[in-house]
């Protein structure tokens, strides 16, 4: 798969075994049987580590890990400078969904992202990263501001979903997400999206429409939580693990479906083991992609973005690709 899957611990342990055997030979001690028992004991441990996270459910757990780095952590690690901007200019400021302007190698970028918080106190203050309508409206304000000043947008997705509560409904969470989907799809600046943890349903998609979509190796992206899927379709909410394994929600699944562009490797044990390394991977992709996308004319950018979204779906029946393409090309002209 990639370099991250080579196991440094295994190499180290193998080396230690070699040294031990050498030492035993030099001292003329018979450690053969003891060493082989030891090796046998190490097998399951090593095997577990070789495949960083085996099942989709393991990935769900890793994606939800309390120590997993969030949007602000990555932004601060990558940016030379970052200034957070608050509020939707209408109702309030949602701490579950952050945004601001940062610079990477001198390039100004508008960042938006879900923010869960890194300890219980922060989790509560940030509503576990579950955004209210004002959060999605803040994100829209910031990306339209980015469009106005011709700044590219980077979005970090990490939420179990938009907040399902009374206040959320009263202020129109459905409308807020719907508007974002519509406006993001025709935004005239490049938008890069990274699913860094949980990509939960409409709450994730609400800041997840862009030119490129990447997923961290242990991130997940789904239409409903495994718990929700289990309680509705399997009629037993305790079957979340079984649900996760059937829902096709891992980065590999989504790459196979053509929904995401690429998978960003994580260190053994998950992103929280070496956040700096993951940040450097993400930063490299941002620089690489923006170098290309920022040089494209806005109308072509939007055209390709819409064309890609337009093509998603699995069904039987007549569908002429060429007509569709012509159709989109003509219609995007109206976008000026």
């Amino acid at each position: 798969m990639n370099e991250q899957d080579k196991n440094p611990q295994k190499d180290q342990i193998d080396k230690l075994f070699g040294e031990l055997e050498q030492l035993a030979q030099q001292q003329q001690m018979d450690l053969g049987s003891d060493l082989s028992t030891l090796k046998a004991k190490m097998v399951p441990v090593l095997k577990n580590r070789e495949t960083t996270a085996c099942s989709p459910w393991d990935k769900v757990c890793l994606a939800r890990h309390v120590q997993r780095p969030g949007s602000l952590e990555y932004i601060n690690m990558m940016c030379d400078d970052f200034m957070e901007l608050h509020g939707d200019r209408c109702y309030g400021d949602d701490t579950a969904l952050i945004g601001g302007i940062g610079t990477i190698d001198g390039r100004a970028i508008t960042f938006i992202g879900n923010q869960k918080g890194s300890n219980l106190k922060e989790n509560i203050a940030r509503n576990h990263g579950m955004g209210h309508p004002e959060g999605y409206r803040k994100a829209l304000r910031l990306v339209q501001q980015a469009e106005k000043f011709n700044r590219p947008v980077v979005s970090f997705i990490d939420t179990s979903g938009a907040y399902p509560g009374l206040a959320s409904e009263e202020r129109g969470i459905g409308e807020a997400i719907a508007r974002n989907l519509k406006e993001f799809s025709v935004l005239k600046v490049p938008v890069l999206c990274f699913i860094i943890g949980e990509g939960g349903s409409g709450g994730a998609l609400g800041i997840g429409v862009g030119d490129k979509l990447y997923m961290l190796e242990n991130a997940v992206y789904s239409v409903i939580s495994p718990e929700g899927f289990a309680s509705i379709l399997l009629r037993d909410s305790s079957k979340a693990e079984e649900a996760a394994n059937t829902m096709k929600i891992t980065a590999e699944d989504l790459k196979e479906f053509g929904i995401i562009h690429d998978i960003i490797p994580e260190p053994v044990g998950g992103a929280h083991k070496d956040p700096q390394l993951v940040a450097s991977h993400i930063k490299k992709i941002i620089t690489r992609d923006l170098d290309i996308l920022c040089s494209k004319p806005a109308d072509r950018l939007v055209r390709y973005r819409i064309k890609k979204i337009r093509g998603i779906g699995h069904f039987n029946g007549a569908q002429s690709w060429w007509d569709q393409l012509l159709n989109i090309f003509q219609l995007t002209r109206a976008l000026k």
Partner: peptide, 24 residues
């Protein structure tokens, strides 16, 4: 949800079509 992530993506697909309708 029986169609997994594809069903979620239909939200973006229909919304972007609405954006084109608006543009015209």
């Amino acid at each position: 949800m029986q169609e997994g992530i594809f069903s979620l993506m239909q939200m973006a697909k229909t919304a972007s079509a609405a954006a084109l309708l608006e543009a015209t």
